[in-house]
Design a protein around this nucleic acid. Sequence first.
DNA 1: CATAGTTCCGTAAACGTTTACGGACGCCAA
DNA 2: TTGGCGTCCGTAAACGTTTACGGAACTATG
Lengths: 363, 363
Amino acid sequence: MSIGNQSRRGGQRRKHSEMKGIRRLAQHLDISIGTVSRALNGRPDVNEETRRRVLAAAKELGYVPNQSGRSLRQGTTNIIGFMMQTGTEITGQGDTFFMSVFDGVQAVFARHKLDLVALLCSSQEDPGDYLRRVVARGFADGVILSATQRHDPRVELLSERNIPFVTLGRTLTDAGQPWLDLDFEGMAQASIDRLVAHGHRRIAVTRPHDDVNLGYVFVERCREALAAHGLALDEDLVFRSTPNEAGGYQIGRDLLALDDRPTAIVLINETIAIGFYRALSEAGVKPGRDIAVIGRYSPHAQFLSPSLTCFRLSLRDLGVALAETLLATMPAFKHHYPHATANTLWPMELVEGASDALHIHQS
Amino acid sequence: MSIGNQSRRGGQRRKHSEMKGIRRLAQHLDISIGTVSRALNGRPDVNEETRRRVLAAAKELGYVPNQSGRSLRQGTTNIIGFMMQTGTEITGQGDTFFMSVFDGVQAVFARHKLDLVALLCSSQEDPGDYLRRVVARGFADGVILSATQRHDPRVELLSERNIPFVTLGRTLTDAGQPWLDLDFEGMAQASIDRLVAHGHRRIAVTRPHDDVNLGYVFVERCREALAAHGLALDEDLVFRSTPNEAGGYQIGRDLLALDDRPTAIVLINETIAIGFYRALSEAGVKPGRDIAVIGRYSPHAQFLSPSLTCFRLSLRDLGVALAETLLATMPAFKHHYPHATANTLWPMELVEGASDALHIHQS
DNA sequence: CATAGTTCCGTAAACGTTTACGGACGCCAA
DNA sequence: TTGGCGTCCGTAAACGTTTACGGAACTATG
């Protein structure tokens, strides 16, 4: 061992317990902090024997590098934020929805030692302010935005701050960021085609009550699909609601109150089917027998009775795609994802149930 | 303005665009970075006029302090983590469970400029490793642990690292940390009493399939409550399942296959009622008419048909209590919460529905 | 005018890392 | 012996803040 090490400086050697962090480790091993850092970070210019000792000592002393120090130096945090709002009335997406998406995102991030955290914006706070406060501070290296609005101020904020991000859902004010979205157009087309083929002529559709939701193109595509069959979309049959169980219940009540009831309905949200079923049940109306219902898949929709005919997608795969799309925009990871699939619609597949078994025979 | 400012040092004045962060701001205003920092942080020893100028310039230049630099200096991040695992099969919490809790937590945190993020631990990774990796690095000032196991290694880890934390759910290996838990004992007692009063003698109960869930005391308390009425708990009527819809469906099938069916059942999880209803429905068995069912409230349970008699709690209030309990353990906030209610059971209230309308008349 | 007190601000040292740079040392060939 | 090269490691300067300290300018008081 060479003498004149920094640990001896000033002739006085402080006790180990007085030091913290990497210094403590270096002092314990009687080597310099630079070498410790290099050893821990897998740099090549360090003796393998030394590295072994450092790693062992780190484990023994329970050393973990301080995140702030590291980030400050490197300018990177290794954290990606998934922004979502608490108070689910707005998005209508359930916990399980995001949990499944997270699963896919993390599968990709794990390969790059990136950590995913959910940025929880209170419904009390302006999302723009929130982003400014937490993300602009260099909290995360990148962001995934969900529940995008048609005009979303967060998009402008992030793009002018040059923070890599991707949105789940299209926006009208496109800042050139990559996006992924569910293929509501495809769902609209397939639903209408299917119902018309079954003889339905009066078909109801649903839409979110404001523009915060993913499916703002849904109704228009339904209209087009109907037109292709020579049918018109009756405006009385376009139902708005909050995207939750209560909203579905309300739709059910409104629908039943109509003089000229539709013979079929397409539900755009996952959760509204439950409330809708309840409203029908109270009136003795049975899905699949008295009215055809098509909805979206969710863990509980699967267990509704009669079983719901619905459109399903792999949320985990969607998460994987989101992660890859984001990383493809980040210089540090770009080369790993040369042809990530951005700006594309995510397909959904039809799961046949009993809820749309009703066929109308022309008289 | 005084001369000899640091911004003039060396005689050369770098262009604004070359500087970053607080230096840029200071140079722009031609004052020292110390003053800028004091002005931004609301320190008293700064001229009000100066403060006004600083604030205006900060807004104009879009300056936000760097989180890493600040944390490094202060040793604090102003971030509280709520740890949860992705892959919801494990927790079985319904869609909006956590969102509602978050809402309450944030209401408290907002008063102290604390930000809540969800620490998403992949189901692929060991939760202990995860905590070591992210939290021990000084990522968060405090942690809320959910879905605690009976023996939870995370508890030991956090307590030996001296990181403030609170658990939602009791643990057997108590490290002296504060906890909150749902009053499953109270639910057990009230359910059994109610069903027995309605004449039921053969009562089934459910329990999680392993010890990851909150309600490990539930079955035992049911047993005691039955014993108080002179009844024994038939072990064949203790159903285990995964805490999700599929688990509830399985319970339903198993129950219906019994030779000597129970006349009532108590479901401990929110989500299993949906699958359970489905299984009954397929067999033509109707809750409230053919069997009495008591469950837990959730946004969809409310819309089941027939309506579910269930135990409800205010998740938002629970979140508030969690936050206050955590802050009460943190030196910086302790004095705000002199008598926070830790180590207490959170009561649930009964919501009467139609699912337990079945009364048994003794023959 | 001298002194004390107040108000405001600049200076510089931390906080815990990473990393460019250079130096010490050993080895080998000329 | 000399020089060159490779291996390993120590040194010190960043990264962007906050804050203890001291000092300058000003006001009040005698």
